[in-house]
Design a binder for these strands. Structure first.
Lengths: 132, 132
DNA sequence: CTATTTGCAAACACTTTGCACAGCA
DNA sequence: TGCTGTGCAAAGTGTTTGCAAATAG
């Protein structure tokens, strides 16, 4: 699989993701790049995202469809607001009690994904207006 | 939306799911039903699953693609084995500390999804044979 | 009877892939 | 020059939908 070469398009995709906290989809990134005047195809964005994720230079939010991407590779928790749809980072880790609980039942824990959902503070104030 | 009528096909789908701990997909259930000689379409299985989930008579595992369904509606944690692909139930709930941590940051927590992954005990013994 | 559900096939959204060409070492 | 990356369009996967026929109350 493609692991060796660092290509200009991969750099472009990674640079576009960096600094974003909105967990964009492949299409979001594609539109951003096109809007900036870059000539790139959606397929290349997808391919770049996979290679970069495999190299650990970005992370893919598991369990999101469409897939969403995050420049933050350190494990953290996500909070999805059911009203506005935003996904917020939540800089905490899974309590170690989970790992020991799991191993007590014979499971070897390697990773975890925790997504909490509810209402973000803005939407609580807005009295749960639905997003379009 | 369809909420009122309890149809024979809905009963059939629900009955087929009950007692299963393997978190089947819509297609799994469809094949099971067809193998049992029932005349039902995949579309009807999907529609039944949605109606039943909405009524709280089953739960849909969030963040699984393809979607997986669970007769257990009480909140619990899932463990996905990366080797054999099985999803195990893990009868615990999220520590309440999460809820308070979230509210401290202005989030109102309504639900959560925690999927832990790694190796189940069988696959640890099998020295990580890959599944097909 | 009348509203609802069902099956079918087509549409759908997102993602991956085959292939010819372009581009980098 | 030789291999890899890229764009395009087509194929693929899982899910939803439009519509006519079947069925329940």
């Amino acid at each position: 699989m493609n692991r060796g070469r660092r290509t200009p398009k991969q750099d472009l995709v990674l640079a576009t993701l960096h600094g974003r906290t909105d967990h964009p989809t492949a299409e979001d990134l594609y539109h951003t790049l096109r809007a900036q005047g870059h000539r790139i195809s959606l397929a290349t964005v997808y391919r770049a995202l996979h290679v970069l994720a495999q190299r650990g230079e970005l992370s893919e939010l598991v369990g999101e469809y469409p897939a969403r991407f995050d420049p933050v590779t350190a494990p953290h928790v996500h909070f999805r607001c059911r009203s506005c749809g935003h996904i917020f980072d939540f800089p905490t880790s899974l309590p170690s009690s989970w790992a020991s609980l799991a191993s007590a039942q014979g499971f070897k824990v390697e990773s975890h994904n925790l997504t909490v959902s509810g209402l973000c503070s803005d939407c609580q104030e807005r009295k749960e207006v639905h997003h379009g």
